[in-house]
């Protein structure tokens, strides 16, 4: 499970970084989203990967902490997802405004001259 998880995080982060370095605003925003997914999975993994362990106390299982997974990273991930979602939506608006005002989707607001 660890290997698959690490691969997923790594591939998404790699693809995200590649896209962020591209010159078109749409590529940048997809890159940022992919990177945000990678980061969210990473936060999740920081609570240690456990299979089939609940994060909240179940009266039938008792109160032994060894039976449960760490609930805090899951709460952090929720917050991070919400904030990431909101800021990405905001970036999308800026992207559209830039496209409308500057007439190009290049990140610098103008096409490079020598091509």
């Amino acid at each position: 499970m660890e290997a698959i998880f690490a691969l997923a995080v790594g591939i998404m982060a790699g693809a995200g970084i590649y896209l962020i370095l591209r010159p078109r605003t749409f590529q940048v925003i997809i890159g940022l989203s992919l990177l945000a997914y990678a980061v969210n999975l990473f936060i999740f993994a920081m609570g240690r990967l456990r299979h089939g362990a609940p994060p909240v106390i179940d009266p039938r299982l008792g109160s032994d902490p060894a039976l449960y997974t760490d609930p805090l990273p899951q709460a952090l991930v929720l917050t991070a997802i919400v904030i990431g979602f909101a800021t990405t939506a905001l970036f999308l608006v800026v992207l559209l405004a830039s496209r409308g005002l500057n007439g190009t989707d290049h990140v610098d607001g103008r096409e490079p001259e020598d091509e």
Partner: peptide, 26 residues
């Protein structure tokens, strides 16, 4: 808007790094 686009992109990236650091520290 052009300057704002760079500002938003750089700071979004920095925020993602912040999350990585905070998660790693935890």
């Amino acid at each position: 808007v052009r300057a704002g686009l760079h500002y938003v992109a750089v700071n979004l990236l920095a925020s993602l790094f912040f999350l990585i650091a905070a998660a790693l520290i935890y």
